[in-house]
């Protein structure tokens, strides 16, 4: 396995362009949580020409709806949710400067094209390893849509959040390549 690449948020083209599908990365800094309902609201704001609750440029969105924090912890379990449900919204956010997405599962052709066009990266975290992932989260603060409960937008401070690059700026897709490699006829 290759060496682990340490990424610090916010990200720039320079951080994103050398990344290739299959690279193992760790992410440190601020990431924002958003899933289905929050994405719908973000895009409604964009279409109405209004300001978003956080500046998207250079940022990383983590597709996660954490479980509630028990006493003495900053967050509950916090693994990725399936990303395709955010596909209708993701290209617009990349156009606004979103640089990274963390989730699990396949992306649409439109999203993969947008990743190339706007120089972004899609990374997978281990789905279902919510307890393990929560160790990388140092603080969590709701910044918008508290009424959405688990779907509220949270600002997370993460330290060495582990992920693997799936879709890169040159059009590679680890899901397709990985499966092809181990397929038995």
């Amino acid at each position: 396995m290759n060496q682990v690449i340490n990424l610090k948020t916010p990200l720039t083209d320079k951080d994103v362009e050398p990344l290739r599908a299959g690279d193992r990365v760790t992410i440190t800094g601020i990431v924002y949580t958003a899933r289905d309902a929050a994405h719908r609201r973000l895009i409604d704001l964009v279409e109405a020409g209004k300001e978003l609750p956080f500046k998207v440029e250079g940022q990383v969105i983590y597709y996660v709806g954490p479980s509630p924090a028990p006493p003495g912890r900053v967050i509950g379990a916090a693994g990725p949710t399936t990303s395709y449900r955010m596909d209708p919204y993701a290209p617009r956010l990349m156009e606004l400067g979103l640089k990274g997405m963390i989730g699990k599962g396949k992306r649409s052709d439109e999203v993969k094209e947008a990743i190339k066009k706007y120089r972004a990266v899609y990374m997978a975290a281990i789905g279902g390893a919510g307890a393990l992932m929560s160790r990388a989260i140092k603080s969590a603060r709701i910044i918008a849509y508290e009424d959405l409960g688990p779907e509220a937008i949270r600002e997370l401070e993460v330290e060495n959040l582990p992920a693997i690059v799936v879709n890169d700026t040159v059009g590679n897709d680890l899901y397709i390549e990985g499966t092809e490699k181990y397929k038995k006829k």
Partner: peptide, 25 residues
């Protein structure tokens, strides 16, 4: 292999620290 090992570790953390193994409960 690495992922399967991490899933075992995840299950131990959840059991020992009394938190859900996955956020989707």
């Amino acid at each position: 292999k690495d992922i399967l090992n991490q899933l075992i570790e995840n299950s131990l953390i959840a059991r020992n620290q009394r938190i859900p193994m996955c956020q989707d409960t």
